[in-house]
Structure formats: C-alpha cells, structure tokens
C-alpha cells in the first residue's frame, strides 16, 4: 500500500529535529566517546593520555573483580527473573480461576510497579535491617545470625527479594494477558479427554505460554541487568565485600568513585554489546510472537 503523504519538504525535518538532536548529543556522541575512551589510558593525574588499543579490555576481562561482577550479575539476574516470574505466573493462574474479585486483586498486585527500584530496596531494608527490622526480629529470635549488611549471602538474598518483588506486577499483567489469549476450546478438548487441571496446565497452558515467558525472560533479564542499579546502590552499595557488585554498579563505581576512566569505558562498551545482543534476540523472537498471536 502506498502511503498518502503531505508534499512539504522542510517541515518533516523540523518535526524530527528535536528527537534527532537529543539522540545525537546524549546518545551517539557519548557512545562514541565511550568507544574512544575505552582504547585510551590516562595517567594518575589525568594529564597525559596514551592510546593502548584493546589493553583496557584485556585488563578488565582478566580482572578477578570483574569476573566476580559477572558471576554476581548472572546469579542475581537468573534468581530475580525466576522468582518474580514464578510467583507472577502462579498468581495469574489463580486469577484466571476466580470469577469475582479479579479487579481487586489486580489493583493490589500492580502497586510495586509504581515504586522506584531504589525505594523497593529501602522498603525491604526497613523490614529486614538487623537493628529494628520487624522481619529480622523473628529471625534473630530463632537464633539466626542475621545481618545482611555484613553477610554477603544474606545481602544477595535481600536484593534479590526486593528486585523480584518489584517486578511481580509487570510479569503478572503479561501472564494474565497470555492466559486470556489461549483458546478455551483446546483446554475443553483436553478436559473431555479426561485430563485433570494440573495435567491441563503442564501439557497445554504452560507450553502455549512459551512466547509470553520468553518475552518476559528477556525483559526481566534487561531489568535485572540495568534497572536494579538503584536497589544495589541504596541497599548494599555493592557490598559487603563485593558480594552484590553487579556489572552496572561496577561501571558506576570504577568511573565515578575510583576514577578509572579507561577501565570504566571498556566496561561500558562490553555492556553495550550485551544490550545489543539482547535487543537483537528480543526482536527476532518478537517476530515469532506475532505469528503465534
């Protein structure tokens, strides 16, 4: 189909100019700078810079602290995506069963979406801080040595809980939409064949939700990688030790706190490559999603 259009020649440039300008100044220029900076090394006083090729990348990738950050990020992302998706799917399946009250449950379950990640982290810290957290209190009564500010595993547990909690709303809404899109006739046919509700779920509903689940897996991965910076920064500051230092947190820390510009830039470039990979994956997959549609 040929699109009907206006004949103006200058007007479209004026319309597109603001977005173009902002993209160039705040996206492309800094991205190019990051690429360039990642090949430079600056001396301790910032007086002299030398071109070092890929040395920054070699250094970053051989740095145990960076490898630790990769490991932390992988564990954090997988567990966050798993918990928030599992809880959301379970609740969405329950919401499909009830006739009355759906609206009410949805209204409550979307609250966390509106809470800033950093505040989500602080809320969980309020509840679980060792000095006056009401939920830390029973743990201590049971004789558990609870202090997420000193114990790395407990710190990780706390940030995962906060990050998963925040993402339940989003996943819930998508699973509800996914469940509604499944043709009822398929489920009826299985019921006629005598499949019980559990069997119907695992053999029909769950596989048909695969497009939704894959989509959410990518979205949750991106969320855990990037949007959770606030949680980490507000709750643990990457600590204790480096137990919760994720890749994004390390870019920030090395760039702004430790002032290792070359290393921070190289890390930025690596992150860029990860985002590009994830986005490409997502768009390939979205094509498929439309076919299922």
């Amino acid at each position: 189909m040929n699109r009907a259009t206006f004949p103006h020649r200058v007007l479209p440039w004026l319309l597109i100019a603001p977005q173009l300008l902002i993209s160039l100044v705040f996206f492309y220029w800094p991205a190019v700078q990051a690429l360039w900076q990642s090949t430079l090394r600056e001396d301790a006083f910032g007086l002299k810079t030398t071109f070092v090729g890929l040395a920054n990348f070699r250094k970053v990738l051989a740095d145990p602290a960076y490898l630790n950050a990769i490991q932390v990020t992988v564990v954090f992302s997988i567990l966050t995506a798993f918990f928030s998706m599992a809880v959301a799917l379970f609740l969405a399946v329950q919401a499909e069963k009830v006739v009355r009250g759906k609206g009410f449950y949805r209204t409550v379950l979307i609250w966390p979406y509106a809470v800033a990640p950093a505040i989500a982290g602080m809320l969980w810290l309020f509840m679980f801080n060792p000095s006056f957290g009401s939920l830390a209190w029973p743990l201590k009564q049971m004789g558990i040595d609870w202090d997420p500010l000193l114990n790395g595993k407990q710190a990780m547990g706390l940030v995962i809980a906060a990050a998963s909690w925040k993402q339940i709303s989003y996943n819930f809404l998508f699973f509800v939409a996914g469940l509604q899109a499944i043709p009822k006739s398929l489920i009826e046919a299985a019921a006629i064949d005598g499949a019980g509700s559990r069997r119907r779920f695992w053999t029909i509903v769950f596989p048909l939700l695969a497009p939704t689940s894959f989509f959410l897996l990518v979205v949750n991965g991106v969320y855990a990688l990037f949007d959770t910076f606030g949680i980490i920064h507000a709750v643990t500051g990457g600590g204790p030790g480096k137990a919760t230092e994720t890749l994004v947190y390390k870019v920030y820390n090395d760039g702004f706190v430790n002032l290792q510009l070359g290393s921070s830039a190289a890390q930025s470039v690596i992150l860029m490559a990860i985002v590009i990979g994830l986005t490409a994956f997502q768009f390939r997959f979205i094509e498929r999603r439309v076919h299922y549609g």
Partner: peptide, 23 residues
C-alpha cells in the same frame, strides 16, 4: 533517520554513564 532513532534503544544511559556526564 528512522534507524538512527531506533538504534538508541540499544544505548541505555547505564552503558554510557561517564561520557554522558561529561557532555
């Protein structure tokens, strides 16, 4: 132009913090 806008999708602020700050 469309692609130029589209590609910014792959450059979230987290991956270009320091240079954007300099700008």
């Amino acid at each position: 132009m469309f692609w130029l806008i589209f590609i910014t999708l792959m450059l979230p602020v987290e991956v270009r913090i320091l240079p954007t700050y300099k700008v």
